[in-house]
C-alpha cells in the first residue's frame, strides 16, 4: 500500500515536472526587466522553501530524538540533513545564475544570500559530524541541528540589518495570473520531490541503523567476533 502511494506520487511529480516546464516556457509572459532569465525564479524560490523546511524538520526531529531517545527520529533528522544539503546546493547554484543575470555578479553579501549560505554550510557541517563524529555522532549532530535551527532567525535578522540588497519583502505576494499559478505549481513540485526523497532516505537510514543494531547485538551475544 505504502509502496503504491509512493509510486503514485512519483508519477504525479513526473507529470507535474513536464507540466511546469511547459508552463514556464510557454505559459508565462516574459518578465519586463529580465526577459527569459527571470524564469530561473520558478526553480530558485521553491528550492529555498525546501531548504528551510528541511532544516526545520531536521531540528524538530533532532529535538524529539534527544528527548525521547527513539532511533526513528534520528533517521528522519539524518535524512532531512542530507536532503537539505542537496536542495541547498541547488538553491545556491540557481540563485547564483539568476544573480549573474539580474545583478551582474555571481554573489552578493546581503541578508538572504548570507543566511542561506550559512544554513547550507550548517547542514554540510551536520553531515560531516554524522560521518566523522565517532560513536556519539548522532547526539552531536542532533545538538548541531537544534542549535542551528534556533539560530536561523537570529542570523537572518542580524544580516538583514547589516546589508540589504535582495528584493525585500519578496516578489511572491505580488505575482499575477499565470506567473502565480506556475510559481505555486513549481513549489508543489519541489515539495513533493522533497517528501519523496526524504521518505526514501529515511528508509535507508532506518535500514542502516537496524543493521548496526543487529551487528552490535550479535557481537554482544558472542555470535560474531
Amino acid at each position: 500500500m505504502k509502496q503504491a502511494m509512493y509510486f503514485v506520487f512519483a508519477g504525479i511529480s513526473v507529470l507535474l515536472f513536464f507540466y511546469t516546464i511547459d508552463l514556464i516556457f510557454y505559459g508565462t509572459p516574459l518578465d519586463a526587466g529580465l526577459y527569459f532569465n527571470q524564469k530561473i525564479f520558478y526553480y530558485h524560490v521553491p528550492q529555498a522553501f525546501v531548504l528551510f523546511l528541511a532544516v526545520i524538520v531536521a531540528g524538530v526531529a533532532s529535538l524529539l530524538y534527544i528527548k525521547r531517545r527513539d532511533g526513528r527520529y534520528d533517521d528522519v533528522a539524518e535524512a532531512a540533513g542530507e536532503v537539505a544539503v542537496l536542495f541547498g546546493a541547488m538553491m545556491l547554484v540557481s540563485g547564483s545564475i539568476w544573480g549573474k543575470a539580474a545583478w551582474g555578479v555571481w554573489w552578493q553579501w546581503d541578508a538572504r544570500l548570507t543566511t542561506s549560505l550559512l544554513l547550507w554550510m550548517l547542514m554540510v557541517g551536520y553531515m560531516l559530524v554524522r560521518k566523522y563524529g565517532g560513536p556519539s555522532a548522532d547526539r552531536l549532530a542532533a545538538g548541531l541541528a537544534i542549535f542551528g535551527a534556533v539560530n536561523i532567525p537570529l542570523v537572518y535578522f542580524s544580516v538583514k540589518i547589516w546589508r540589504t540588497l535582495h528584493p525585500e519583502a519578496s516578489v511572491v505576494p505580488g505575482l499575477q495570473g499565470s506567473m502565480r499559478t506556475t510559481f505555486w505549481l513549481s513549489v508543489l513540485l519541489f515539495q513533493i520531490v522533497f517528501v519523496l526523497l526524504l521518505i526514501a532516505r529515511v528508509g535507508q537510514s532506518r535500514i542502516q541503523r537496524q543493521v548496526r543494531e543487529v551487528r552490535e547485538r550479535a557481537l554482544d551475544a558472542g555470535l560474531l567476533d
Binding site: 516546464i21 527569459f36 532569465n37 530561473i40 526553480y43 546546493a89 541547488m90 545564475i97 543575470a101
Partner: peptide, 16 residues
C-alpha cells in the same frame, strides 16, 4: 538566452 536557463534547469535536475 534561454539556453542558459535551460542549462541551469538541466544542472539542477542532474543534481537530483
Amino acid at each position: 538566452n534561454n539556453n542558459h536557463v535551460i542549462m541551469a534547469y538541466a544542472a539542477l535536475w542532474a543534481l537530483v
